[in-house]
Deep mutational scan, measured.
Amino acid sequence: SMGQARALMGLSAQLDEELDFREGDVITIIGVPEPGWFEGELEGRRGIFPEGFVELLGPLR
């Protein structure tokens, strides 16, 4: 894990590789696949999402 982030708003996945989450969910960050995107894990599910949907809870490791 690289850190954690809290969802500022919900994301309804449009693509298979995207992660669904609700506002307030705390997501474990597991990677940065490309600039502007995070890869995360939530409730046993993994996927990517735009960084603008979340606030980091501390610096990434």
Rank of each mutant, 00 (worst) to 15 (best):
V32G: 08
L19W: 01
G52D: 10
G3M: 03
G36N: 15
E17G: 14
L19T: 02
F53C: 12
E41S: 02
P59N: 05
R61P: 15
G3L: 07
I29C: 06
E41K: 01
Q4A: 06
L19D: 08
F21N: 05
I30K: 12
G58S: 13
E23V: 14
L19C: 04
M2Y: 10
T28A: 07
E51W: 05
Q4R: 11
W37C: 05
L56A: 08
D16W: 12
A5Y: 02
L11A: 10
G44A: 00
E51I: 06
G52S: 08
S12K: 12
E39I: 11
L11K: 15
R6K: 10
A13I: 01
D20L: 04
F49S: 03
G47S: 06
G47A: 00
R46I: 09
E39F: 07
M2S: 06
E51K: 13
G10T: 15
P59F: 03
E41Y: 06
L11F: 15
D20I: 01
R22E: 08
R6M: 11
I29Y: 00
V26A: 12
D16G: 08
E43V: 02
D16T: 08
R61G: 12
A7H: 06
G24D: 08
S12P: 01
G44T: 02
E18D: 10
G3S: 03
D20N: 13
F21V: 03
E18F: 12
A5M: 01
E43S: 05
R46C: 12
I27F: 02
F21T: 06
G36H: 07
G58L: 06
T28E: 14
T28Q: 08
V32L: 08
L11D: 06
E39H: 10
L15A: 15
L19I: 07
L15Q: 15
A5I: 09
F49A: 06
G44S: 07
R46F: 08
S12G: 07
D16H: 12
E34Q: 08
D20T: 14
S1Y: 14
R46Q: 05
E23W: 02
V54R: 06
L11G: 02
R46A: 08
G36C: 01
D25Y: 01
A13K: 10
M2V: 05
V54P: 05
I48L: 05
F38R: 11
L42G: 04
V32T: 14
R22H: 14
A7V: 01
A7D: 02
E39W: 10
M2F: 10
F53G: 02
G47T: 01
L42Q: 04
M2C: 06
G3D: 04
I30P: 01
P59H: 07
F21A: 02
R61M: 10
Q4S: 12
R45T: 03
V54S: 01
L60W: 08
D20S: 15
S12I: 09
L15R: 15
R45S: 04
V54W: 05
T28M: 06
L60N: 08
R61W: 08
E23S: 08
L19Q: 00
A5Q: 04
S1T: 12
I29V: 09
I27N: 05
L15E: 14
L56I: 07
G40A: 02
I29H: 03
Q14N: 13
L19R: 05
R61T: 13
V54T: 04
R6C: 07
Q14E: 09
F49K: 05
G31M: 15
L56Q: 03
G31A: 06
I27Q: 06
V32D: 05
Q4T: 14
M2L: 11
L8W: 00
W37L: 07
E17H: 14
E39V: 11
E18P: 09
E17F: 10
S1V: 14
E55T: 08
S12D: 14
I30C: 09
I29G: 00
A13H: 10
D20R: 08
R6V: 14
R22M: 12
G31P: 12
L11E: 03
S1A: 15
P59M: 08
V54A: 12
P59D: 09
S1N: 13
E43H: 15
G10P: 09
E23N: 06
E23Q: 14
G58A: 11
T28Y: 08
G58N: 11
S12Y: 11
L11M: 15
G44L: 02
L42R: 09
W37R: 10
L8Q: 09
L11P: 01
R6W: 09
F49C: 04
E55R: 05
A5E: 00
G47C: 02
E18C: 11
M2A: 01
I29L: 08
S12W: 07
G40W: 14
E39A: 06
I30A: 04
E39K: 10
R22G: 10
R46L: 02
Q14H: 14
R6N: 01
M9A: 12
A13S: 15
G47F: 06
I30M: 06
D20F: 09
L60S: 11
I48D: 00
S1P: 04
R22T: 12
S12Q: 14
E39G: 02
V32Q: 10
L56W: 01
G47R: 01
E55D: 09
M9I: 10
E39N: 00
V26D: 12
Q14A: 09
D16R: 10
E17R: 12
E51S: 14
L42N: 03
S12C: 09
R61V: 14
E51T: 07
Q14P: 11
G31D: 11
F21K: 01
E34W: 14
E23G: 00
V32N: 10
E55W: 08
